[in-house]
Design a protein around this nucleic acid. Structure first.
Lengths: 331, 331
DNA sequence: CTATTATGTGCAACCGGTTGCATGTCAACG
DNA sequence: CGTTGACATGCAACCGGTTGCACATAATAG
């Protein structure tokens, strides 16, 4: 049923119309240097007149390359990801690749299913902030070239955003402002970033003699931040570091609702710089690098596709504190 | 070069191992009712043992159906779209379709290019908030089944979010609060939604005797909202209706920066309810329906793929005002 | 107990390209 | 002037499935 809506011009039709072999038409597009320039011109002219468009699928079947890659993120709606997506797409386009976007909704099982469904249609996968277990990741990586973002699995090429340094800076920043009791509002426990941030906050707090307590949330959402507020206030803390900007925003809303003014009565720090500048007061946060991560991961994947083995590549991106208006001296 | 990384088990290998014809293996998956139950079981067992996975590309070549659709949006980072994307994906998955996401970056030319690149790999396209000219849209629609979101081109199935009613309500709301001079902060001029909203605001304002002026911005961003503020204030208006929530947020930030307090000194209304509840003060806005639009558009596309002609379907979604905390009586 | 109809499988052509190899042509070379 | 390549093109097999049709066997009807 080769309907193809309209047109459906094939290589054979072009070949016949041009009076050449099918292979020549094929080569006119893929290996023009093998043909005489005149032949190429002639074929292309005829093809154009007929409205010929090479069939991607057929090409993929014989070459084994389909020119597609998959990008799987936990949540498109989280402002951390759009810049990453955009950068990944831009980088993919440079190599003439299309990208399938998958959305795991922060759910490991869904992520697993997505990988299964998509991997048969792509040449490689970029897995951003996976919630999956190491075993499953390794299993998938063994069948398809894969690059990880923000997940440290040895043997799989990965790009890591080292938010540890930024969070440490943030903690120090709060200490310098005179805060004594601070809270870290945690994100998804399966998230590498979260572990890293929490660890950095704890280590630095201990070193500087701050009291740090941790509040857990499973999903990094505005809601989760909002709901963490009572718990934060009950701990008598004067500052909070949130897993990400979205949660920070939730926390700010919750504080405002309770009449706690920021930064006068309470200081808040976000992470990722995803919305920092898009709110009032502008948010003190840790720089994000999500776009860079998207770009690098795709280019890494492309290397992987070409040279096959790329070993244990691990690309680390630095972060630092961006002090804006939601932090000030402890009350 | 049939590398395929690992495995690479084909239907032929399964057939041989199971002692049946290739066609039987094929049918075991696609038309099991044509085979005896025992044969099906046997084949599947052998296939499983060998690790056989049907090759999507090959199937697509012979059937002409690849099980993919494309979704093109102007800006993933705009909070209006993630819910739409998610809903579209969920709906697509119900029919076992994968979705390519394209990002036109609010640029008509890029949108055109994307359509060209993607359309050869998908069965149909959902084009959300296109910036392209009617002619180009029609041209693409003639080669590929297509559904439009928020663009009214006759002859192409479309789902329209009728924000006109909601904006009219918003205008009336402001009038009732005693505002006399209001501003509509416009979005992309090529956007159907924008035209509709502007028209509704203008019409209602005129009917109620309000003075309405329009300020233009080409891209609906936080930045654009921010930059519109001086212009808004210079017009001596006491309220603004923004093209969308993101711009409204920018306007709020700009007002705050100038010490204008909302809603005491100035009222702001957004559109789409994309961030309304995610900020302080919570934003008065017009309900969005973006998720519904995503869902409906995909199901419409699927109908289109099956029954081919679906005529001049036009699915209209209603909106209404959601009064929250950024509007109050005129100062 | 033969004639007829279901039912289950196999054969082979096809989807639309790609590619290794063979062939033919013509110019440069010894 | 015969040989050797380099170059341009054609032939045909292949990628991995799907599907119309033929055929054999079994079930049903007459």
């Amino acid at each position: 049923m080769p309907a193809e809506r309209k047109g459906g011009v094939t290589i054979s039709q072009v070949a016949e119309a041009a009076g050449v072999a099918r292979s020549s038409v094929s080569r006119a597009y893929t290996k023009p240097h093998m043909l005489s320039p005149e032949t190429v011109d002639h074929i292309k002219a005829v093809a154009k007149r007929l409205g010929y468009v090479p069939n991607h699928t057929a090409r993929a079947l014989s070459t084994g390359r389909n020119g597609n890659i998959a990008l799987i993120v936990p949540d498109v709606a989280n402002p951390f990801f759009p810049p990453l997506i955009r950068a990944a797409q831009a980088e993919a386009e440079r190599s003439d690749l299309c990208v399938f976007l998958g959305n795991s909704e922060e759910d490991a099982e869904k992520e697993d299913k997505l990988l299964g469904r998509l991997s048969s249609q792509v040449e490689g996968v970029v897995l951003a902030s996976p919630r999956l277990s190491d075993e499953r990741i390794l299993a998938h990586a063994s069948r398809k070239p894969m690059v990880l973002i923000n997940r440290n699995v040895e043997g799989i090429p990965r790009v890591l955003i080292d938010s540890g340094t930024g969070v440490a800076e943030a903690t120090r920043h709060l200490a310098e402002l005179g805060h004594k009791r601070i809270v870290y509002v945690s994100g998804p426990s399966a998230s590498w970033s979260n572990k890293q941030r929490r660890a950095a906050a704890r280590k630095t707090a201990t070193a500087l003699g701050l009291e740090l307590s941790v509040i857990s949330a499973s999903v990094p959402s505005f809601e989760a931040g909002l709901q963490a507020v009572p718990s934060i206030l009950s701990r008598k803390a004067t500052a909070a570091i949130a897993f990400d900007d979205v949660m920070a925003q939730g926390i700010l809303a919750g504080l405002a609702a309770r009449g706690v003014s920021v930064p006068a009565d309470f200081s808040v720090v976000g992470c990722d710089d995803a919305l920092g500048a898009l709110m009032v007061p502008v948010l003190t946060t840790v720089s994000g690098q999500s776009a860079e991560a998207g770009k690098v991961s795709v280019s890494l994947l492309m290397q992987l596709l070409q040279s096959d083995a790329l070993g244990d590549a691990c690309y680390m991106l630095e972060t630092h504190l961006i002090a804006r208006s939601t932090t000030s001296a402890a009350p």
